[in-house]
Each structure stands twice: as structure tokens, then as C-alpha cells.
């Protein structure tokens, strides 16, 4: 997947754990882990909105396109 999720970097910059974020955005830790590890196939706008609100960032800060990575089949 050429789309990468930079949740780890954002959490590190804000000194926040995944468990804390899960509590703030009302998502399960399992689902956030799927997002963090890049295993998610799709992200709902509502999820993106909640994460951006909790981390005070833009969607572009969370997602990036890396053309060197192979595209999803």
C-alpha cells in the first residue's frame, strides 16, 4: 500500500499513547492498532475527524503517499 499512516509520529510528538487516543476518539484499541500498523483498507471520515480533533492536526498530517511503496493489488 502506497498510502502510509503517520499516527505513530503524531502520537510521539504529542506524548500520547494509543490507549489514550482510543479513549478520546471513542474507537477500540484494536481498530486504532489496525490503522497505526497500516493494515486498514479504508478510513471513515468520522474516524479521521475524531483523530484530527484529538491530535489537533490535519488529515494530511496523518496520511501520506509514498510512490516507492507497492500499490495495493
Amino acid at each position: 500500500m502506497a498510502i502510509t499512516v503517520r499516527l505513530d509520529e503524531l502520537l510521539h510528538a504529542r506524548r500520547m499513547t494509543l490507549t489514550e487516543l482510543a479513549a478520546r476518539v471513542d474507537l477500540t484499541l484494536a481498530n486504532l492498532s489496525i490503522l497505526k500498523t497500516g493494515k486498514a483498507k479504508a478510513v471513515r471520515f468520522s474516524t479521521l475527524e475524531a483523530i484530527c480533533a484529538a491530535l489537533e492536526c490535519q488529515p494530511g498530517d496523518l496520511l501520506a503517499f509514498d510512490p516507492t511503496l507497492p500499490a495495493e493489488e
Binding site: 489496525i34 490503522l35 483498507k41 479504508a42
Partner: peptide
């Protein structure tokens, strides 16, 4: 269904 399973 497979797509939905990977949706967060």
C-alpha cells in the same frame, strides 16, 4: 464484507 472488515 472483506473491505468493511478493514475499515476503521
Amino acid at each position: 464484507r472483506a473491505d468493511l472488515e478493514g475499515t476503521v
